[in-house]
Design a protein around this nucleic acid. Structure first.
Length: 1072
RNA sequence: GGGCCUGUAGCUCAGGCGGUUAGAGCGCAUCCCUGAUAAGGAUGAGGUCCCAGGUUCAAGUCCUGGCAGGCCCA
C-alpha cells in the first residue's frame, strides 16, 4: 500500500487542471467510463449543435457544463451515456461571417464572387471555429465525443434531411404557398419568426392619418373621406382596399385640420377623440351597410392599373381583425406587404399591386418613387399627401419594429412563394407531446412554449441563400415537382452516378432530371433550407438514418433523448424544431426532459456584447481561476433559467468558500494521516472502508450529515435540479471543515488509539464520498482528491473517480435527531461566544460553569453533546439550568399552529396571556405541561381557558446573576467569575500560545520535540509550576528550564503585565 | 399592446404546505482563535421582504391591481 500524498496547502487550480487533463488522456478515462457500462440501460443525451460562426463565449460554458453534469451523474449511476458531439454548420450566420471577411455587400456580390468559391469559404470558416470550440470543450472538462461529431454539412447528414423532406412531401406535409413573410432586403431572404424575434428595436417612425375621399354613395355626396391610419406610409402606394370591423360603430364627424380646412371624416366612434381631435363634431352614425362597398380615391396613383383591376379594388370591405385599440378603426390594405392584408385580398378578390423589388426599392412603374428604398420614402410620401390635401395629420410614433438580426436592416413584409412544413396539421399532436416533456422550469411547458404551440403557423422552410441544405425539389416547365431523398435516388433520377457529388450548391443546381411525369427537363428549386430544420433533424440525421442499416439501428437505440439542455432562447429555436420535426415524422417528441438556461450577464445585469465591451473571455477566466469554480458558478448560483450576473469576484467567492475550504480539509487530512501512519482498512468486499473504531457523537453526526447529503444530492440530480444538490453539497463541505474538523483536531495529533482511528476513518470516508459526489460538478478537483485519498493507498480501486459508482444513501447512518441536537449545540456555542464577547472575556480564559436552556424536543440529544459545548466555550462544566435549585425560571411560549385554528381571532389574546404569565404561574404550569397534562390559564376577555401541551411550549431559563444571552428558546448563562486557579490556567494557556508562536517563527515542523525555557516571575511563574505537564505536553517539550540552555530561538512576550522570556531548541530525533 | 419570469441587507442569493425572531455568503467595523496558519472563527452595524389594496386569527409566502427590470411575442 502506498502513502497519502504531501499536499501543497496552496491550491493552484489551473495547474491542477492541466495535470488531470493529462491523466484522463493517458488513462482514456472518458472512453472507459462509457465502455464499462456495456449492456447497461442507456441514458440518451442529444448535443444541441452550436453554430460554429464565431469564438465561443462564457454562455457556451454555461450550456456545456449542464450538458456535462447530468451525463456524468447518470454514468456514475450505472447508465450507459453515449455522448456524440455535433456542429451546426449551415445558415445565414455563417454566410454573413464570410461576407464580412470577403467584403461582399449583397447577394449580387456573392453571385459575382461565385457560389462554389463562396460556399467553400463557408465550409472553411465553420471548420476554423470548430477548433476553438473543441479547445474550450476539453478545457472545461466537457466530456463529449468530438471525433464522432455529426456535422450538418456532411453528405450523410444532408441526405437524411432530404429523406425527411421527401417523407413530408409523400404525406402532403410539404407544400408550396404564396405567402407574406418578414423579409430582409439586404440579405434578400425571408426570416423565420424566431429570427424576426431576435431583431425587434424601439424606433420612432412617421405615422400618418390619411383622408381618402369617398367617390360613391351618400358619403361622396356629403364630401366625406375615410380616415385611415398607417405606421408605414409607403404601403399606401400599393393600397387596394380599406377594411372596417363588423362589430365597430362608425360615425361621420366634422373637424378643422392643421391646415385650417374643415373636413368630414368617417372614423370609429371610440377613436374620434384620439384620431380626429377633442373638438370633432359628430354629425351622424354611419351604419356598416352604408360603408361597405363605398369606393374611394387612391392615395397614390403612380402605379397604372387596368380597368378590370380598378373595378375590383379601392372599396370598403369588412374583416374581424380590425380593432379600435389604436388608429382610426379603418385599416388600409396592401396585400403583397402584410399577412392579414393578403388574407383580406384573397377573400375579396382584390387586385395585388407588387411594385417593390427584391432589393426593397420601388420598381420602375412607380414614377418618381422608382429606385427608392421604401422605408426611406415615408417622409416624402407624407409630404406629397399633405400637398395634395389628403393628409389629416402626421406624427412620429415610437414602437417596436423588426430589424434583420444580423445586418440591422429594417425588415419589410413581402409576398414571395415558399415551401412550408404543414405543422398546423399536427398541432394537436405537438400540444399533446409537449405535455409529456419534463420542462425545467416547468412554467415553460404551459407558458412560453405552450402558447407558442397553441398559435402554431406553418413553418416556412425556404431561404433564398447559398450555404445550406439545398431543397431536394426539382421542377419542370409543367410545374411537376420531383423530390429526391438521397444521392442514390438522385443518380437514378438523373440517369448517371452522382454518389460522390457534394450535395451543396452550386453542384446540385447543375443536375437536371427528366421529369418522371412529362419527360421535360426539371431543374432544382433554387432555395436552400432553413438551418433550424437541419438541427431539428439531428435525432436521425446524426446517424445518416434511414440510408444505412447501422444508422437505422443507432437511431432506434437512441430515440428519443432522455435529456437535453440549452439556452431558454431556444424555446422557439431548437426546442421547437426538434419537437416539430420528430412529431411530423415520428409522431412523438424527441426529448423527454429539458433544462432551460438563462442569459449570463455582466455585473450590472447587462447583456454581454462586443459593443458594450463587457464580454468575458472564457479562456482568460479558465486560465486564471481554473475550470471547476466557473463550472460551479454556472451550476450552483441562482436559478439556472434566470439571467445571472457573472464577474471575476463571483468566481473568486466560489473558489474561496468551496474549493479552498475543501482543499484545506484535504491537506489537513493528508498531513496528519502521513504523520500518524493512518491507512484505511480493506474490507472483504475489496473496497476500502473506515475502520470500525468506536465513533464519537461527533463522528456519528458528521456521518449522518454525509448520509443525508448523499440522499439529497441524489434526489435533486435525479430531478434535474443541479442547484439544490450543489447547495447541499457545499453545506456539507462547510460543516465538515468548520465544525467536524475544527472540533476534532486534537484527535488527529499523536493519536494512535481507537479514538484517532475513528477520527481518521470518519474524515477519510467523508472526503472520499465528497470526491465522488463532487465528480459531476467539479471533475478536476474531485479527481485530484480521489487520486490522493484512494488511488495512492489502494492499487485495486478504480483509477479515476469518474469510473466509480455513485454512492448509495445509507439509511442506517441518517440521524435527524442528532442533526437537530447538533444544530442546537452550535446555536448554544454561538450564544456563549456572544456572552464572552460582551463580557470581554476571551476564549483562552477558562471559566467554571455555564448553564443552558434549550427547547424540549432537542433536550435529550443535546444532553449527550454537552462536552462539545464545554470545550468550545472553554468552560469546565456545562449543565441544564433545570437541576439547579433557584437558578431556573420558566416562560410559556404560544404555539400558533395549534392556537390559531382553535381560537381564531382570540388566538392573540391567549398568546398574550401565555407570554405574560407571571413567573409563579409559569413555574407551576411548566412541569405539568411537560408531563403532558392539560392546564388552565386565565385569559383576559375569555375567562379560564384549558390548554394542552401542544399549544404552549415551556422555555426554561437560567435566572442567575450571570451573563445571560438568549435566542428564542435557547439560552446560555455564563459564570464570569475568574478564580485564582482559573487565572493561572488562563496564563498557562497564554504561555502555550506564545511558545507555539515561537515554534512557528523558528520554522519547526509540527511534530518536532523541543527543549524549553521560561524565565518569568510572579503569577506567570506560578502558572508554569501549576501546569507544568500541560505546558510540556502542548508544546512537545521534553524538558523545561528557567533559563536558556545555549543556542536556540528566543522571544520576549508580555504576559500579565510583566515581561516573560522564552527560549527553545529542537531536540534531535535520537534524543527524543 | 400581450404572455411568462424576477423584485428579500451595500452586493450576490436562500427562504416545502401561510404560523409571530426573515437567513447565508461577500463587503464593512470590532474582536477571537491558531498543531489546517499567506488558513479558520465570532460579534456588530445593515431590511417599509418593490408599492397599494384584499383574503385570514396570522401574509415575505395566497388573491387583485400597479411600479420596475428581464425574456419571449405582436
Amino acid at each position: 500500500m502506498g502513502q497519502f500524498p504531501e499536499v501543497d496547502p496552496n491550491l493552484d487550480l489551473p495547474a491542477l487542471d492541466a495535470r488531470i487533463l493529462e491523466l484522463w488522456r493517458d488513462r482514456k478515462v472518458f472512453q472507459r467510463s462509457v465502455d464499462q457500462r456495456v449492456g447497461a440501460e442507456p441514458f440518451v443525451f442529444y448535443e444541441g449543435p452550436p453554430t460554429a460562426n464565431g469564438r465561443p463565449g462564457v454562455h457556451h460554458v454555461e450550456a456545456r457544463v449542464f450538458k456535462d453534469l447530468f451525463p456524468r451523474f447518470k454514468t456514475m449511476r450505472g447508465y450507459r451515456v453515449d455522448r456524440k458531439g455535433g456542429w451546426d454548420c449551415h445558415g445565414l450566420p455563417v454566410e454573413l461571417e464570410v461576407e464580412k471577411e470577403l467584403g461582399l455587400k449583397d447577394k449580387q456580390a456573392i453571385e459575382t464572387y461565385g457560389v462554389e468559391a463562396f460556399n467553400a469559404r463557408c465550409r472553411e470558416s465553420v471548420e476554423r471555429y470548430v477548433d476553438a470550440f473543441e479547445q474550450l470543450t476539453e478545457r472545461i472538462g466537457f466530456w463529449i465525443d468530438a471525433s464522432q461529431a455529426y456535422r450538418t454539412m456532411d453528405t450523410s447528414y444532408v441526405e437524411s434531411v432530404w429523406w425527411a423532406l421527401a417523407e413530408l412531401h409523400r404525406r402532403g406535409l410539404l407544400v408550396e404557398d404564396y405567402k407574406v413573410s418578414p423579409y430582409c432586403p439586404r440579405c434578400q431572404t425571408t426570416l423565420s419568426d424566431a429570427e424576426v424575434a431576435m431583431g425587434y428595436k424601439e424606433v420612432e417612425d412617421l405615422t400618418a392619418y390619411v383622408a381618402l375621399p369617398a367617390t360613391t354613395g351618400t358619403l361622396a355626396e356629403e364630401g366625406a373621406a375615410l380616415l385611415v391610419w398607417t405606421t408605414q406610409p409607403w404601403t399606401l402606394v400599393p393600397n387596394v382596399s380599406v377594411v372596417v370591423g363588423p362589430g365597430i360603430d362608425y360615425v361621420l364627424v366634422e373637424a378643422t385640420g392643421e391646415d385650417g380646412r374643415a373636413r368630414k371624416l368617417v372614423v370609429a366612434r371610440e377613436r374620434v377623440a384620439a384620431a380626429v381631435g377633442e373638438d370633432a363634431r359628430v354629425l351622424r352614425p354611419v351604419p356598416l351597410e352604408e360603408l361597405l362597398g363605398t369606393r374611394y380615391q387612391r392615395a397614390f396613383e403612380e402605379i397604372p392599373v387596368s380597368e378590370e383591376e380598378a373595378a375590383r379594388g379601392w372599396t370598403v370591405v369588412a374583416d374581424e381583425y380590425v380593432t379600435t385599440s389604436d388608429g382610426s378603426g379603418l385599416v388600409q390594405t396592401s396585400p403583397a406587404y402584410g399577412a392579414e392584408d393578403l388574407a383580406v385580398g384573397q377573400r375579396y378578390n382584390t387586385p395585388v399591386l407588387h411594385p417593390v423589388g427584391l432589393d426593397g426599392k420601388f420598381g420602375p412603374e412607380t414614377g418618381w418613387l422608382a429606385g427608392r428604398f421604401v422605408k426611406a420614402a415615408d417622409a416624402d410620401l407624407v409630404g406629397d399627401l399633405r400637398r395634395r390635401g389628403l393628409l389629416w395629420r402626421a406624427e412620429t410614433h415610437t414602437h417596436a419594429y423588426p430589424f434583420c438580426w444580423r445586418c440591422a436592416t429594417p425588415l419589410i413584409y413581402y409576398a414571395l412563394t415558399s415551401w412550408y412544413a404543414r405543422t398546423t396539421a399536427v398541432k394537436d399532436r405537438l400540444l399533446a407531446e409537449n405535455a409529456r416533456i419534463g420542462w425545467r422550469p416547468e412554467h415553460i411547458r404551459d407558458g412560453r412554449f405552450g402558447d407558442w404551440l397553441a398559435n402554431n403557423v406553418d413553418w416556412a422552410l425556404s431561404r433564398s441563400r447559398y450555404w445550406g441544405t439545398p431543397l431536394p425539389l426539382w421542377r419542370c416547365e409543367e410545374q411537376h415537382v420531383t423530390v429526391v431523398e438521397s444521392l442514390a435516388d438522385l443518380s437514378a433520377k438523373a440517369g448517371r452516378d452522382l454518389s460522390g457529388i457534394d450535395p451543396h450548391r452550386p453542384f446540385v443546381d447543375e443536375v437536371t432530371l427528366a421529369c418522371p411525369e412529362c419527360g421535360q427537363e426539371a431543374r432544382r428549386v433554387p432555395d436552400v433550407l432553413d438551418a433550424w430544420f437541419d438541427s431539428g433533424s439531428m435525432p436521425f440525421a446524426q446517424w445518416g438514418y434511414p440510408h444505412t442499416p447501422e444508422g437505422r439501428a443507432a437511431f432506434e437505440r437512441a430515440f428519443p433523448a432522455d435529456f437535453i439542455s440549452e439556452g431558454i432562447d431556444q424555446t422557439r429555436g431548437w426546442f421547437y424544431s426538434l419537437l416539430a420535426v420528430s412529431t411530423l415524422l415520428f409522431d412523438q417528441t424527441s426529448f423527454r426532459n429539458v433544462v432551460c438556461l438563462g442569459l449570463i450577464v455582466d455585473r450590472n445585469g447587462r447583456k454581454m456584447s462586443k459593443s458594450l465591451g463587457n464580454v468575458l473571455d472564457p479562456f482568460q477566466l479558465l486560465d486564471r481561476y481554473g475550470a471547476d469554480p466557473l463550472r460551479w458558478f454556472m451550476l450552483a448560483s441562482g436559478s439556472p433559467w434566470a439571467s445571472r450576473r457573472l464577474f471575476p469576484e463571483a468566481i473568486e467567492d466560489v473558489t474561496r468558500s468551496l474549493f479552498l475550504t475543501l482543499w484545506n480539509t484535504y491537506s489537513f487530512f493528508c498531513l496528519y494521516a502521513r504523520l500518524e501512519g493512518f491507512h484505511p482498512v480493506r474490507s472483504t468486499g475489496g473496497a476500502t472502508s473506515a475502520p470500525p473504531g468506536p465513533p464519537t457523537p461527533l463522528d456519528r453526526w458528521v456521518l449522518a450529515e454525509l448520509a443525508d447529503t448523499v440522499d439529497q444530492v441524489t434526489r435533486s440530480l435525479d430531478d434535474y435540479d443541479a442547484t439544490s444538490a450543489a447547495r447541499r453539497l457545499a453545506g456539507f463541505v462547510d460543516d465538515l471543515s468548520n465544525w467536524y474538523v475544527r472540533l476534532s483536531r486534537r484527535r488527529f495529533w499523536r493519536g494512535t488509539g481507537d479514538d484517532a482511528d475513528a477520527a481518521f476513518g470518519t474524515l477519510w470516508t467523508c472526503l472520499r464520498t465528497v470526491a465522488v459526489l463532487l465528480a459531476p460538478y467539479a471533475p478536476f478537483t474531485a479527481e485530484e482528491l480521489w487520486q490522493g485519498l484512494v488511488v495512492s493507498v489502494d492499487s485495486e480501486a478504480p483509477d479515476s473517480v469518474h469510473l466509480v459508482d455513485w454512492p448509495r444513501p445509507d439509511p442506517a447512518a441518517a440521524d435527524p435527531e442528532l442533526s437537530a441536537a447538533m444544530a442546537e449545540v452550535r446555536r448554544l456555542v454561538g450564544l456563549g461566544r456572544q456572552a464572552r464577547t460582551e463580557a470581554k472575556l476571551k476564549i483562552r480564559q477558562p471559566l467554571a460553569r455555564a448553564l443552558i436552556g434549550v427547547p424540549d424536543p432537542v433536550r435529550a440529544g443535546v444532553a449527550g453533546l454537552l462536552d462539545l459545548v464545554a470545550a468550545e466555550l472553554n468552560v469546565k462544566e456545562v449543565g441544564f439550568a433545570e437541576g439547579e435549585a433557584g437558578l431556573v425560571g420558566y416562560r410559556l411560549a404560544p404555539n400558533f399552529r395549534a392556537l390559531g385554528p382553535r381560537f381564531g381571532r382570540d388566538a392573540q389574546a391567549v398568546a398574550a396571556a401565555l407570554r405574560q404569565a407571571p413567573p409563579g404561574v409559569a413555574a407551576e404550569l411548566a412541569p405539568r405541561l411537560r408531563a403532558g397534562e392539560r392546564v388552565e390559564l386565565a385569559v383576559e376577555g375569555l375567562g379560564t381557558v384549558e390548554l394542552g401541551p401542544d399549544e404552549a411550549a415551556v422555555v426554561e431559563e437560567p435566572v442567575t446573576g450571570w451573563r445571560v444571552v438568549r435566542d428564542g428558546a435557547t439560552t446560555v448563562a455564563l459564570d464570569l467569575e475568574v478564580s485564582p486557579e482559573l487565572r493561572l490556567e488562563g496564563l498557562a494557556r497564554d504561555l502555550v500560545r506564545a511558545v507555539q508562536d515561537l515554534r512557528k517563527s523558528a520554522g519547526l515542523e509540527v511534530a518536532d520535540r523541543i527543549e524549553l525555557a521560561v524565565k518569568a516571575g510572579g503569577d506567570v511563574a506560578a502558572a508554569v509550576a501549576a501546569h507544568r505537564d500541560y505546558l510540556l505536553g502542548e508544546t512537545l517539550a521534553t524538558s523545561l528550564h528557567t533559563a536558556p540552555q545555549g543556542d536556540g530561538h528566543d522571544a520576549r512576550v508580555e504576559l500579565d503585565g510583566q515581561e516573560v522570556r522564552l527560549w527553545l531548541r529542537p531536540v534531535r530525533a535520537v534524543d527524543a
